[in-house]
C-alpha cells in the first residue's frame, strides 16, 4: 500500500494548504474536522456494535462548558478551552455512561437520544442562563497569551484543529488495536465469552463511552470557537443522526473514514445548499440513499476497492 500512503499524505497536504488558495474554506474545514472528531467517537462505539443516537449531547455539552468557561476567564485561552470542553463532556460521558452501558442495541441508541433531547430542551428552556435558542456568544480566545486578529486567528485555529485531529486520530487507532480495543470488538461478536474471560463488558464499554464522549467534546469546542456562538442546535437529534450517517459514509470501522466522511458530507451539503437552495434536503437524501445502497462500505471501503485493483498480491490488511 505504499502508493496509497503517499496519496493519503498528498491529500492531507492539500487540505492543509487549501486555506491559502480559498480563504473562506477555513470555516468549512474546521467544522468538518470538528464533526469528524465527533464521528470518531461514534466509530469507537461502533466497534462494540453499539450505535449512539445522542452523541450531539456531548458535542453540545462541551461547547456550552467552553462558552461558560470563556466568560468566567474573560476570554480564555484556546488550548485551555479545548481541554475544559473535553473534560466537561468526559465527566458527562461518565455520568450518562454509567446508566447507559447496561443496555444494548436499540435501547442503547434510544436512551442516548433521550438524554440528548432532554439536554436540548433544558438548553432552550433555561433561557436566562443559556441564552435559549439564541445561544451564547463565544468571543475569540487568545492563543498562548496573544490576542489575535480575525484572520491570523482563523489560520491558527485551522492548523490547531488539523493537528488535534491527527493526534487524536492516531491515538484512537492505537486504542482500537490495543487489548481494551479488542475487548471492545468482542462485545459485538460475543459478549458472554468476554465475561467468561473475566473482563467486564460493561467496564470496557464504559471506558469506550467516555473516550467517545471526550472526542465529541473536543469537536464541539472546536466548532464553538470557530463559529463564535453556541446554540441548542448543537444537541438536536438530527445532528446526532448526521454523526451516525457520516460514520457509515466514511466507513464504519475506520479512523480515517470518520474524517473523510465528514469532509465529503460537509462539502456535498454546502454545495447542494448553494446550487439548489430549494431542494438541497432532497438531493442530499438521494445522495445518501445511493451511498448506502451501492457503497455501504463507505469511502474507505471504496478506496480499498479501487486501490486493491492497483496493488500487488499479498497486501497487508489494515
Amino acid at each position: 500500500m505504499r502508493g496509497g500512503r503517499f496519496l493519503l499524505l498528498g491529500v492531507v497536504a492539500l487540505i492543509a494548504l487549501m486555506p491559502l488558495f480559498a480563504p473562506w474554506s477555513k470555516t468549512f474545514l474546521v467544522l468538518a474536522i470538528a464533526k469528524g472528531l465527533a464521528v470518531l467517537g461514534i466509530v469507537v462505539l461502533l466497534r462494540a456494535g453499539q450505535v449512539s443516537f445522542g452523541h450531539a449531547l456531548f458535542f453540545a455539552a462541551s461547547a456550552y462548558v467552553a462558552a461558560f468557561a470563556a466568560r468566567l476567564l474573560g476570554g480564555g485561552e484556546l488550548l485551555t478551552l479545548l481541554v475544559i470542553g473535553a473534560l466537561g463532556s468526559g465527566v458527562l460521558g461518565l455520568l450518562v455512561g454509567l446508566f447507559v452501558v447496561r443496555y444494548r442495541y436499540i435501547f442503547f441508541g434510544m436512551l442516548n437520544l433521550a438524554f440528548s433531547m432532554v439536554f436540548y430542551a433544558v438548553l432552550e428552556k433555561f433561557y436566562h442562563y443559556t441564552g435559549g435558542s439564541d445561544g451564547l456568544i463565544l468571543s475569540r480566545p487568545s492563543v498562548l497569551g496573544i490576542g489575535l486578529e480575525r484572520l491570523p486567528f482563523e489560520y491558527t485555529l485551522f492548523y490547531v484543529a488539523l493537528a488535534t485531529a491527527a493526534v487524536l486520530g492516531w491515538l484512537v487507532h492505537r486504542y482500537l488495536n490495543s487489548a481494551p480495543g479488542r475487548a471492545l470488538a468482542a462485545i459485538k461478536t460475543n459478549e458472554t465469552r468476554l465475561e467468561y474471560l473475566g473482563i467486564s463488558a460493561r467496564g470496557t464499554l464504559l471506558v469506550a463511552y467516555v473516550i467517545s464522549a471526550m472526542l465529541a467534546g473536543v469537536g464541539g469546542t472546536l466548532a464553538a470557537v470557530m463559529q463564535g456562538l453556541v446554540t441548542p442546535e448543537y444537541a438536536y437529534w438530527v445532528r446526532s443522526g448526521e454523526f451516525v450517517f457520516i460514520a457509515i459514509l466514511g466507513g464504519a470501522g475506520h479512523v480515517l473514514g470518520a474524517f473523510a466522511g465528514a469532509l465529503v458530507y460537509e462539502g456535498v451539503r454546502m454545495y447542494l445548499a448553494v446550487l439548489a437552495a430549494d431542494m438541497w434536503q432532497l438531493l442530499l437524501g438521494v445522495v445518501l440513499l445511493v451511498i448506502v445502497l451501492f457503497a455501504s462500505e463507505g469511502l474507505v471501503g471504496l478506496w480499498h476497492r479501487i486501490s486493491g485493483r492497483f496493488a500487488p498480491a499479498g497486501r497487508e490488511a489494515s
Binding site: F245, D278, W280, Q281, L282, G285, V286, L289, V292
Partner: peptide
C-alpha cells in the same frame, strides 16, 4: 436509508 427517505420526503 429511512433517514434519507425522511429528508427526501421533507422536500
Amino acid at each position: 436509508v429511512t433517514f434519507a427517505i425522511f429528508m427526501i420526503l421533507e422536500d
